[in-house]
Every structure is written in C-alpha cells, then in structure tokens.
Amino acid sequence: GYRVEKYRVSQRSTRGIVFAHPEQLKKLERHGWLTLIDSTHKTNRYDWRLFTLYVCDTYGCWNVGAHFFVSSEDADTVAEALIIIRNKYCRWSPRYILSDHSNIEAKSIKKTFPGMAAGEQECQVLLCVVHVMRTWMQKIHEKKTRDIMIAAMHKRTKIGCESLVQDAINSCPVPSIQSYIKRNYTKNTEKWGLWARQHSPLLLQVTSTNSLESFHSELKKTTSSSHGLIGTSSASLKSVDSHQYTR
C-alpha cells in the first residue's frame, strides 16, 4: 500500500501529510538526478497546497515520485516534507531540482540538501525558464532591456551571459529596472542561465516545469475544492494510475 506520514512543524503551528507508493519512490530514487517540484491549489476544502515531485525515466516518460500536502506554503513546512521523503522513504539524491520562481521552494531545498557543507553531493536549484520570462514580462517592461536579458539566458558561456546582463543594466533607461536586475539576476546566473546546463542534454531539454503543471491541470479535473484531504489524495493516486506523460 501507500506510505503515508503526518507531521507538524511546532514553531510555525503548521502541518503536512506526505504520501507515496513504494513503486513511485523507487522511480524517485532511480531517476531523481533531475527532479521537478511544483505546487497547486484549490484541490481541497482546507486550501492546503498539494506538492508533487516529478521525474523522467529512461523511456522519456514522466512519473510522480511523491506527493505532499502543506497547511501553509513556507520554507520550514515544505522542507519537513522533503526531509521525510529523503531520510525515511527512500535514498533520494537529486543533483538538480527544477522549480518555478519561488524563494520558498529554494530555501526548503537548501535546508533538505545542505550539500558540501554537510559532506554530501551538491543539489543545485534550477529555475524554470518559462516562469523567469513571465516574471521579466511583468518586472522588466522596457522591451529592449528584456530582450537583452533573454539573449543572456540563452548564452552558452558564463562570461557571455554575465556580459549581456551588464549590457542590459548599462543600456536600461529606467533606474528601478536597473536596480531590479542588479539585485536579482547578477549573482545567480547558474540558476536561470542555460550556460550552466550545457553539459547535460536532459537539462537542455527540460528547461521548464510545464510537464508537471500539465499533470496538475489533469489532476484538477478529478478533484474539487469541496473535497477533503483523503478525497483529494485518492483522486491524485487514481490520476497517477491512469495517466503517463511524455516529454
């Protein structure tokens, strides 16, 4: 049967539920080198967020690795679920985790996988390029500057990427946008720049969380905001059983 664990984060008075099938956990352990993470809302009447871990197998098919609900989407509550999956459920050892533009997810991943500081493999957070560009559409409304940033994203070398980011800052006529780019995108190009993914065909193929968002979209057809957590969990498991997603 399914492995299910409830937990509580006392300092935040938040709760969560982790659930996964042993076969899913095997796939997470075997194919979790690159893991996608995303959350969705309006799947239950308590408005708990449903998170899914998603992995691509050797046949190019996407599979659920695990699910968890959180009563509050904060770094501590999300991290506790990831720690349970990593330490109690399977030997999940991702090298890269692809997420949307969420600081909460990034902080929870860092807490779960401290990397070299703890004498273990680094786990790098990569940002979904679709979410990054959506953010730029909202925040960098100066089109010429935005186009330079998009060109920087697609540069194949770190130095080329950083040079274009500086060009975008220097040529931008809006001081607030200059500050925004300096603050958010000059020191973390390895997260959003494709230069950092050139060594891996898989990382160059899978640059967004679109496949996981598609799964959540299909899942919502079988769930309802009037469902309880058990009803939503049951629908999630049926959806996993009846759907396979390819790249």
Rank of each mutant, 00 (worst) to 15 (best):
W92Y: 14
R86W: 09
V174N: 15
E190I: 00
S242V: 00
S234G: 05
H154Y: 15
G231A: 07
K220V: 00
D38W: 07
T43G: 13
T135N: 13
D167L: 06
R8K: 13
T112N: 10
D76Q: 04
R146D: 02
V240W: 03
Y185E: 10
S71R: 02
S239P: 01
V70M: 02
K155G: 08
E213K: 13
T157F: 05
H141K: 12
E80Y: 04
E142G: 08
S71H: 03
S10R: 10
K238I: 01
E190G: 01
T157V: 02
M133P: 00
I83G: 07
K26I: 00
R247H: 10
Q198D: 12
I148Q: 08
S102K: 07
W195F: 11
A81V: 04
S13H: 13
L204K: 14
G32A: 06
S72H: 06
S226E: 15
S224A: 09
S214I: 06
V240I: 10
Q11I: 01
Y54S: 01
S102D: 14
C161K: 09
L50M: 04
M153D: 12
D76R: 01
H101F: 10
D147N: 04
M149S: 08
K155T: 12
K191S: 06
R91Q: 14
S39L: 11
C172E: 15
G231E: 15
R146Y: 00
K26D: 13
G119F: 06
T112Y: 08
K26R: 05
W33Y: 10
G65I: 05
K27V: 00
N63G: 09
M137I: 04
K155Q: 15
H154D: 14
S211D: 08
S179A: 08
K155I: 04
M116A: 08
I169L: 09
E29V: 00
G160H: 07
I230S: 07
D57G: 05
S239N: 14
T14M: 02
T222R: 14
T135G: 04
W62Q: 12
S39V: 09
S10T: 04
R86F: 05
W33G: 06
I17T: 15
I230Q: 11
E5W: 05
S200R: 12
Q205H: 11
A117E: 15
S171E: 12
T186K: 09
V4H: 09
S102I: 00
T58L: 04
V206L: 06
R12Y: 05
I84W: 07
K238T: 05
